[in-house]
Each structure stands twice: as structure tokens, then as C-alpha cells.
């Protein structure tokens, strides 16, 4: 799937509240969406601003057939954002959301 389709999918899930947060036995303050420091609406605005040049993918550390989607240095409200997520059907998991 290209960036445009991935963007559509993650935005749809965000706005419907149909996603999960990855937890490695604990809650990381690197995921500001998980901790409530930023809202889903704000994250959607950040993702919406992102362009193809901000986007890359890499295989998940342990499960290399899972593609992790990464947005780097997306500028929103004078901050540079980093967002990481992946799909594991039927769910979508956020790993990181931080400036």
C-alpha cells in the first residue's frame, strides 16, 4: 500500500477510535496518544499534514512480515513530530507519538 492509502487507513481508524497502543509490559511516555497528552484529533491533523517525503517503512523487530509505518519530522504547531504504527488485522497499533 502506498503512503496515500496508509494515511487514509490510519486517519480513518484514529477518527473512529478503532486502534490500540502497543505496550511492552509497561506504559511508555513516548506515546503521547496513549498517555492522553495529545488527542486523536491532534494526531490526525499531524498525519494529515505529512507528505510522502516524511514517510518510510521498516519491518517490525520481531515479526518481519509486519510493516511498521513511520512519519518523521512532520511539522505541526512549531513542533517536529514522530509517529510510528503498524497494522495487525483486524487492529492497528500505535508504537510512538511524540515531538
Amino acid at each position: 500500500m502506498g503512503f496515500k492509502k496508509e494515511k487514509y487507513e490510519v486517519l480513518k481508524r484514529l477518527l473512529l477510535g478503532n486502534y490500540l497502543h502497543e505496550a511492552r509490559s509497561s506504559i511508555s511516555e513516548k506515546n503521547l496518544l496513549q498517555t492522553g497528552k495529545v488527542s486523536a484529533e491532534t494526531v490526525a491533523k499531524i498525519i494529515n499534514k505529512a507528505r510522502g517525503g516524511d514517510y518510510s517503512t521498516s519491518p517490525h523487530h520481531f515479526v518481519d512480515n509486519i510493516e511498521v509505518h513511520i512519519l518523521r519530522k512532520v511539522t505541526y504547531e512549531n513542533k517536529s513530530w514522530y509517529i510510528k504504527w503498524y497494522s495487525l488485522e483486524p487492529d492497528l497499533f500505535f508504537i510512538s507519538v511524540h515531538a
Binding site: L20, H21, E22, I27, E29, T35, G36, A40
Partner: peptide, 24 residues
């Protein structure tokens, strides 16, 4: 979300975020 194999927490749903935010 708890792993059925090892019992570790592997996921949190957005509905748990307000409780997490309150503790922070």
C-alpha cells in the same frame, strides 16, 4: 490486552487513556 502465552500486558485500548492520564 494480555498475552495468552506469557501473561504480559501487550496492548492498551484508547478507553484506558483517561485513567492513564489521571495517574500521570
Amino acid at each position: 490486552g494480555v498475552c495468552d502465552a506469557c501473561g504480559e500486558v501487550v496492548a492498551t485500548p484508547p478507553q484506558s487513556t483517561p485513567s492513564i492520564k489521571k495517574v500521570i
